[in-house]
């Protein structure tokens, strides 16, 4: 399923957060959105998922959703957004409970999602008993349980330590390969962008506009291999050059309030 954003603009009071953003994410493609703090990345993601009404512009999807898809546009949140009073299983099942599924269909889906994210043995555990990485796995399981057509990921790994981030990146790649999900992924982390994206879209500082787009033609699952180290370093350096000045100005804007 394609995701198409046309002429998106958004204001918070007098502040223009986003100005004229056009972006299409093709079916099965992963587009990573990077940019300086406050450039409107998360706002754009909120608009893409229908959680924020755009000031101007249109959001559309095109193409067929995968079989069994219950929630075509599905979020993965930076802070996991887990219900602390529900177990892992309960959190994952939440996404299904308002759909007309039989109990066995529901249980099957939850079990498959838990298996896919390595959480089967933690099904009856509460979120507070889990590490940050495991909590985000629950967030991922809750997302995949509805068999989404498009995943919207808002800095899903930013609250995690470097090692956990590596592990979850590998898991994300495996899930994307398997499910062929379209993904729009917001991050601050250039290494993450270079590892995960088919394309990296660089946004300018506020008001956010698309400044540049880099297509990455290295095979996605093999970018961490030594033979691609130089190309990856070069890619990250290019991304940093695109973003550095914007980030410096944005940092001063934040400091000036």
């Amino acid at each position: 399923m394609d995701l198409r954003l046309s002429g998106i603009a958004h204001r918070y009071g007098d502040l223009t957060a986003i100005e004229r953003v056009d972006l299409t994410v093709g079916s099965g493609e992963t587009v990573v959105l990077i940019g300086p703090s406050g450039c409107g990345k998360s706002t754009l993601l909120g608009i893409a998922g229908g959680l924020l009404a755009p000031g101007a512009g249109r959001v559309e999807t095109a193409g067929a959703a995968p079989a069994g898809c219950l929630n075509p546009l599905t979020y993965v949140f930076q802070d996991f957004a887990l219900l602390p009073w529900r177990t892992v299983e309960g959190n994952v099942a939440l996404a299904l409970e308002h759909h007309p599924l039989t109990a066995s269909e529901r249980a099957e889906r939850v079990d498959a999602a838990l298996a896919l994210t390595g959480l089967r043995e933690f099904a009856l555990v509460y979120p507070k008993q889990l590490s940050g990485g495991m909590r985000q796995r629950v967030g991922l399981a809750r997302a995949v349980v509805v068999r989404p057509a498009i995943l919207l990921l808002d800095e899903p790994l930013s609250a995690l330590d470097a090692q956990t981030r590596e592990l979850l990146m590998a898991d994300l790649l495996a899930i994307w390969e398997r499910e062929r999900t379209t993904a729009l992924y917001v991050t601050h982390n250039l290494a993450e962008a270079a590892r995960l994206g088919d394309r990296v879209v660089v946004m300018s500082r506020r008001p956010g506009r698309i400044k540049d787009t880099l297509a990455i033609d290295l095979p996605r699952g093999a970018r961490e291999r030594p033979e691609h180290a130089a190309a990856m370093a070069d890619l990250q350096a290019r991304l940093w050059r695109l973003i550095e000045d914007e980030a410096r100005v944005a940092e001063r804007e934040v400091a000036d309030g």
């Binding site: 599905t74 219900l83 939440l94």
Partner: peptide
């Protein structure tokens, strides 16, 4: 009740009554 939990429920298309019953009320308890 953390607004991110409500947004999460909305993002999965839960009806308002379900959001109140499954998110807001337990969160307010």
């Amino acid at each position: 009740v953390p607004r991110n939990l409500i947004r999460m429920a909305q993002s999965f298309g839960l009806p308002v009554a379900e959001i109140v019953r499954k998110v807001v009320l337990p969160g307010a308890l």
